[in-house]
Design a protein around this nucleic acid. Structure first.
Lengths: 105, 105
DNA sequence: TCATAATATCAATATATCTTGATATATTAT
DNA sequence: ATAATATATCAAGATATATTGATATTATGA
């Protein structure tokens, strides 16, 4: 029950839905890329990414000080069906702003 | 987006998860049956049933003063996958206490 | 080691959701 | 119409979650 509610809680937030679709489209991105693209402050992003990771949607690859987030594969049936459902919604996303080596955000 | 969040919000509550599984197992039940079985006060049940109905999980058949709630069929892929996921959790449920005609709850 | 940059966590406030008790609505029987 | 029953809704307090700004942690390079 607990793990299921963790999953549904993760899905029950507009910011996290947008992050999931964005990461699914644009592949592994570091926090500062997302920060620039979404115009959000870092602590807010970090919190939402942690929730999505702990709910089993994301994986993190650390490269030095950077943390690259991407959709975890393979996803189980429920999570991948949720992701598929999200894609039918036609959510408007910001353009990707990718940092070139040095971030300084 | 709004409809999706309505669905995830409905799934993001332990009481509603238990109601969903219970209704899936025991078919159409009126509020007073659920009230007796779960030992919950009526207003609480009514509220949760409304949320599940508006999120597309339940349908209601009115028969006189009784309102019979059951799982809506057919469910779309996301909702039925959610229901399937719930069943893998092995949630403990109360025994069904069915009213015999007159309710008086 | 020290400075800098990227990310994570904490504390406080704001917002949303759940529960309860009271009240309202609707249907049936007298 | 009145009374009784089943269900729905409302208002208030309790609990949980989101956002923000500040601080802590971690890794890199001088």
């Amino acid at each position: 029950m607990e793990i299921f509610l963790q999953t549904t809680a993760a899905l029950n937030d507009e910011t996290r839905i947008r992050l999931l679709t964005f990461l699914d489209i644009h592949g592994p991105l570091c926090v500062c890329d997302l920060q620039e693209s979404f115009g959000m402050i870092q602590s807010r992003l970090s919190r939402h990414l942690k929730i999505l990771k702990e709910a089993g949607f994301l994986r993190v690859e650390r490269q030095g000080t950077w943390a690259y987030y991407s959709i975890r594969t393979p996803l189980d049936r429920f999570r991948s069906e949720a992701l598929a459902e999200i894609f039918t919604l036609g959510i408007a996303l910001p353009p990707l702003i990718k940092q070139t080596g040095e971030c300084k955000v």
